[in-house]
């Protein structure tokens, strides 16, 4: 009797638990960062849509076997300010759940985007006024602690400190700048920020896993750019020089199990060291992940619209 609800519910559960766990544990994403990001994005989109679609399908099931037609009937009646007579309490609860989820996902995403934009604007003002302008993009802060970061946006700023310049050899500095320029140029914040927003909307383990994974993957993409322009050894030395200095260690969040033997910085250095020539299976993983990503979004969309 629930018609379209079952497949959507099964998909929602798969995307909420086993698939993120599997993806987070796999090692191939480190070698196919871009394909892995696409797959995580597909998991996020399909997960969100099926999470909303399943209760919606339960709610409109008495109206029609198909979610699409059922929604149309519901919409037509709502337009005439009527509630379809065949809807019972269970259906009304399911529809309310779908509505709450939708409002929460959209609302929190918008709020998060606004908050991030406001923080960034403040940071941009501060470095534009108080830092030395090395060029149109690069700002140098008079501070002894080594740090380098990117303030993303349509006019991005790359910020380094005097301490960074002092701590690095020229090729290492070039590696750091190439890494940050890659973040700025490829707008990596547009990849990461939706995941941060979804995680605040639904602070559950799968969302946390996805955010952590995607954050790590864009670092790897930027590392790949830096390794190409400054060389792997220079980048590895820069990571050790900047990451290896004493400083406040980001505290592990309660309940987060650390990845076996690796903080992101250590993980990135080890990744640079273990770049093996890919074999055939390894070469097929990338296209397979892209295919899975497309299927994950296109499949349920087709199913609902059929």
């Amino acid at each position: 009797m629930f018609a379209d609800a079952w497949p959507l519910a099964v998909l929602a559960i798969l995307l909420a638990w086993p698939i993120p766990v599997f993806l987070a544990r796999a090692s191939w994403p480190r070698r196919h960062a871009r394909a892995a990001i696409a797959l995580w994005q597909a998991v996020g989109i399909a997960g969100g849509l099926s999470l909303i679609g399943a209760p919606l399908a339960v709610g409109v099931a008495p109206l029609d076997r198909h979610l699409r037609t059922g929604l149309f009937v519901l919409w037509r009646d709502a337009f005439h300010l009527r509630v379809p007579a065949s809807l019972g309490l269970a259906q009304e609860i399911a529809l309310a759940l779908a509505a709450v989820l939708t409002v929460r996902l959209v609302g929190v995403t918008l709020l998060s985007a606004l908050r991030i934009e406001r923080d960034l604007r403040r940071q941009r003002d501060a470095v534009d006024l108080a830092a030395e302008h090395a060029d149109r993009q690069l700002r140098v802060l008079e501070h002894a602690a080594p740090a380098a970061y990117c303030l993303p946006g349509t006019r991005p700023r790359i910020v380094i400190t005097e301490g960074t310049i002092a701590a690095l050899a020229p090729d290492e500095l070039e590696a750091v700048l190439a890494h940050e320029r890659a973040h700025a140029r490829w707008r990596h914040e547009l990849v990461v920020q939706p995941f941060v927003a979804w995680e605040s909307a639904l602070p559950l383990p799968p969302a946390r896993r996805a955010t952590a994974a995607v954050t790590g993957l864009v670092e790897m993409l930027a590392d790949d750019h830096a390794a190409r322009s400054a060389g792997r050894p220079a980048l590895a030395r820069a990571l050790v020089a900047i990451g290896g200095t004493a400083g406040p260690v980001p505290s592990q969040r309660a309940g987060d199990s650390p990845k076996p033997g690796a903080t992101p910085t250590l993980d990135r250095v080890q990744r640079l060291l273990r770049a093996a020539a890919p074999n055939l299976t390894e070469r097929l993983i990338g296209p397979a992940a892209w295919f899975a990503a497309i299927l994950l979004v296109a499949g349920p969309t087709w199913y609902v619209l059929r």
Binding site: D119, L120, Y149, P152, H183, Q193, V196, T211, P248, P264
Partner: peptide, 12 residues
């Protein structure tokens, strides 16, 4: 990852 800023490498 809470913040919009991700620095080059975190302290270890």
């Amino acid at each position: 990852r809470r913040s919009a800023l991700v620095r080059f490498a975190g302290a270890v």
